Amino acid sequence: MGELTRGESGAVERLDAARMLARVERWCAINSGTRNLAGCSAMAEALADAFAALPGEVTLVEPGAAESVGADGSVAALAHGHHLRATVRPEAPVRLLLTGHLDTVYPVDHPFQTLTWREPGVLNGPGVADMKGGLALMLEALLAVEAEGARFGYDVVINSDEETGSFSSAALLAEAARGKVAALTYEPALPDGTLAGARGGTGNFSIVVRGRAAHAGRNPADGRNAVVAASALALRLHAERSPRLAVNPARIDGGGPNNVVPDLAVLRVNFRPADAGEIARAQALVERAAAEVAAVHEVSVEVHGGFNRPPKPIDAGAARLFELVRASGADLGQAIAWRDTGGVCDGNNIAACGVPVVDTMGARGGAIHSAEEYLIVDSLSERAALSAVTMLRIAEGALA
């Protein structure tokens, strides 16, 4: 352990491990798969009750507009659950943003619904690491610094759609990031505590191809095969992949009886650009390939979607924040490292607003997005202490 101030030591001593674990167990009993709107509502209400222990105002925010493209090519509004926002001391000269998500990847009918102790200190369950454990320790850290007389301001945003791209909460995150000196996001760390550094971006597209139906035996030449055209488009896009731009044509919806030339197909494609230049290249690629396929195959092509998470580089501000977190960890006896990752999260969106962010301040755990997901329970106290000390040091001007 290194040197902690009296306030830092006091905050760490106030952390209650049993209370954090109880929150995790209680919250993980609520299925809050993104599309389970009733479950997300129940989870949002539970969080609102818990975060009401903080000073300031807690509100449940209506989701923004979002849409989806169906397998039939139709575009429909996509409903989401409410997002939580807590605002404390908005007039303070130093203000932080803390973010998390209440949704999980496990639908209401998924078989993975219960908690199991894999071994002493290791809890298996839906959302234990990603990220209900992170929400539990975020709240505990805030309660601890408040008890020590915190003077900095902060907003907490917990959205209901992070696992599907944050389409209905992106505007809320951008608004909440305004004027903040730094942000902490509570995605899980790796099992050894390693943080995510730079992240690539991501974009998702649904491309609707409409051709002309015809009898496959009597007059196939009169048809315009939408599945063939969508396949040609997928191949063109995939051929442009590079070490700095991953292109994954993931699915083609469409087709029908074997004796009918299909007149509809929907191609789903994911891009992973390394930087803003690759986003521009990918956007131009989609436009060019769509026009070429439409002309060659005599079909119409409608492009829906875009790049919802920009790449997150480690700039000078982010490097200073990482160093502060590392030093705080060292003074707590925690070795903190970081490494770049291909995954994305709300940290991408926050960094794009010009706010330094560390986006893996959550619990240590692993096997997320699977029925093997687990939480290392001791990390609740470790990471809550790391958050508390980091926040107190930012409040004292460590990033100035």
Rank of each mutant, 00 (worst) to 15 (best):
140 E>N: 06
121 G>P: 09
192 D>P: 04
189 A>S: 13
159 N>G: 12
140 E>R: 04
182 A>N: 11
188 P>D: 01
175 E>D: 05
106 Y>E: 14
110 H>C: 11
101 H>S: 03
140 E>V: 02
141 A>G: 01
142 L>S: 11
102 L>A: 12
137 L>M: 12
183 A>Q: 01
124 N>I: 02
150 A>S: 10
136 A>M: 10
155 D>W: 11
161 D>R: 09
194 T>Q: 12
100 G>D: 00
128 V>W: 08
141 A>S: 05
106 Y>F: 14
191 P>V: 03
149 G>P: 15
153 G>C: 09
154 Y>E: 02
129 A>H: 03
117 W>M: 08
192 D>R: 05
134 G>N: 09
156 V>T: 05
128 V>G: 07
118 R>L: 15
188 P>I: 02
193 G>C: 07
130 D>W: 08
185 T>S: 11
194 T>D: 13
179 G>F: 02
131 M>Y: 04
189 A>H: 06
186 Y>E: 00
158 I>G: 03
177 A>Q: 01
149 G>Y: 12
164 T>F: 12
129 A>C: 08
133 G>T: 11
128 V>P: 03
164 T>A: 11
130 D>L: 06
184 L>K: 02
136 A>T: 07
147 A>R: 09
101 H>G: 02
106 Y>T: 10
127 G>R: 15
195 L>F: 00
142 L>N: 15
164 T>E: 12
111 P>Y: 08
195 L>K: 05
198 A>L: 07
179 G>L: 01
126 P>N: 04
132 K>I: 08
120 P>V: 01
170 A>V: 07
106 Y>S: 15
115 L>Q: 04
144 A>V: 02
140 E>D: 13
138 M>A: 10
159 N>L: 10
139 L>A: 01
205 F>G: 06
187 E>Q: 11
168 S>Q: 06
168 S>H: 04
159 N>S: 15
101 H>M: 04
184 L>R: 04
182 A>Y: 12
142 L>F: 14
119 E>H: 04
140 E>G: 02
99 T>P: 13
144 A>L: 01
127 G>W: 12
125 G>Q: 05
159 N>M: 13
125 G>H: 05
